[in-house]
């Protein structure tokens, strides 16, 4: 028995097995967002008109939500779509909590991701209505700005205009209340720094 060789072989191979074992404990689909802590990318999106009779031509939106105008209030930005099954789980929770938190300085907005306004409207009616505005983002530019991987995703933005948290998947009552309560409890944060210049990648 050549123990030296055996030891060398094992030493070469052990890290590989350890690495694979480590891999088993990880979910490759969970990706940390670089956004928390940074200034939230601004958006100005048209509010989807809700009172439209089915089949009628799509009216032009009369209202726009601009994120920058809402500085000083906490924002919950929810990306969703009518074709998204998991969105059905979270929508009632969001719709129930939005009015309750409005008085405490929190705004909710939904951003429609890759869906037609008519399908989205039908879905919202089917879900029993929505207590906060639905915004249209036909070119998905805000979705890209927020590093969206899919729907549903929910972004929490502090009163100082910084992203606090990006939640992937259907958000729960517990996640919403605990995140928002701790945000409200927080003392006013220091003023926002300008958008960090993107670090150049070599």
């Amino acid at each position: 028995m050549n123990w030296k060789r055996a030891a060398m072989g094992t030493a070469a191979i052990a890290p590989l097995v350890a690495l694979l074992a480590f891999g088993m404990t990880r979910n490759p689909k969970e990706i940390l967002s670089p956004l928390p802590g940074r200034a939230a990318p601004d958006f100005a999106l048209a509010v989807m008109p809700m009172d439209v009779t089915d089949g009628a031509p799509e009216p032009a939106s009369t209202d726009t939500v601009r994120l920058a105008d809402r500085r000083g209030r906490i924002q919950v930005v929810n990306y969703y779509a009518s074709w998204c099954l998991a969105c059905r789980d979270e929508h009632p929770v969001l719709s129930a909590l939005a009015p309750r938190y409005a008085a405490r300085g929190v705004d909710f907005v939904g951003i429609v991701y890759k869906d037609s306004p008519s399908a989205m409207r039908r879905w919202i009616v089917q879900m029993g209505g929505q207590t906060y505005p639905a915004l249209l983002d036909p070119s998905a530019r805000s979705a890209i700005d927020y590093g969206l991987y899919g729907v549903p995703e929910t972004v929490f933005i502090g009163a100082d205009g910084r992203v606090v948290k990006k939640y992937i998947g259907p958000v729960t009552h517990q996640v919403l209340t605990s995140t928002l309560d701790s945000l409200i409890a927080l003392a006013p944060a220091p003023p926002v720094q300008p958008v960090p210049a993107d670090t150049v990648v070599r």
Binding site: P34, L35, I144, G147, Y149, T199, V200, V201
Partner: peptide, 13 residues
Amino acid sequence: PDEVKAYFVGRYG
């Protein structure tokens, strides 16, 4: 090109 990539890294990591 590097600046464009940096933009996406800033959003997606």
